[in-house]
Write a protein that binds this DNA or RNA. Sequence first.
DNA 1: TGGATTTGACCTTT
DNA 2: AAAGGTCAAATCCA
Length: 320
Amino acid sequence: MKNSSNKRSLVADQWHPSSVCCDHRAALREIAKGQSLVTQLRAIVLPALHSDERCDLAAQMLEGILDCSRKAVSQLQLLLSSPHDDDDHHHVDDKRRVRKIISSSDDDDHCSSKAAEDHNAKPLRQHKRRRFGDSVSLETPVPHYDGHQWRKYGQKHIKNSKHPRSYYRCTYRQEEKCKATKTVQQREDLHHANSYNGDHPIMYTVVYYGQHTCCKGPAALADDHVVVEASQISTDSHCQSPSSSSDLQAAEVHAGNSSQCSNISVTCSSSVVVEDCNKLLDMMPAADELTADVLLFDMTAYAPLDLDINWEMDINALWV
DNA sequence: TGGATTTGACCTTT
DNA sequence: AAAGGTCAAATCCA
């Protein structure tokens, strides 16, 4: 408690002399987490409801909750926006901000002037180093449980790291020009992770870059049909085995088995459409297995929704 | 057969 | 030059 209060005062000093401002940001973060939880809940509950009427009602209620929180966020952002707007991005490195402006302008052009000069060049590749300023970093045992569909496009071994880093982009990158990406890497040390009386779940560091601009987010999925991955039931004949050759996802299966949680991932890169709601319920862990820690992990497994806020944890949680 | 994943090469940044 | 991010051909799989 003492540490947290010290940290809070430090942050207040950095951002704004007013601690009230800082509290608003904390409130924004909490609301964003709440939105994530509701989105998660919706993805689980809606397919379990057979009745269309109940399903519609539940969908409306959940959407109402999300709407309320969105309005709350708007109000808080109004309070935060005035005289010190330029302080909002203080934690983003200035050089990176400049690059962001430059690179974002040619994101859609696909061709830099350098490439234009090279008439014999192969089709230009876009290789841009990521910007931490745009990122949200989370630690979770369920790295794919974030309500969006991702397609893996690369994997790299990272220096001084046992586990490779996997690169994902939004499945709807092309059709909807959604530029959201994320990286997933298994953590090596669990000493800082929460534990269940010493039984450590495998933790992953997930870093989200950019925001989803596609219309196939959690809401759309819940309204349409819910896509669910059940990593623990990968042997089920109805289910597509989650990428047998991916050590990352194999590790995820392991995580699901070892931690009594994370049995269900929604809208993962390897997914299966659940047509039988009872089956989905069978896949779910018993309620009494959901410990507080599990809830905490699942909560933080979500990227924030489309909130135009800067998460303080971006910088603090970045793990190199 | 088409979509998803793997993986080595290529490119950018530091 | 090394490290990290992305591309795209090869491969896998339902």
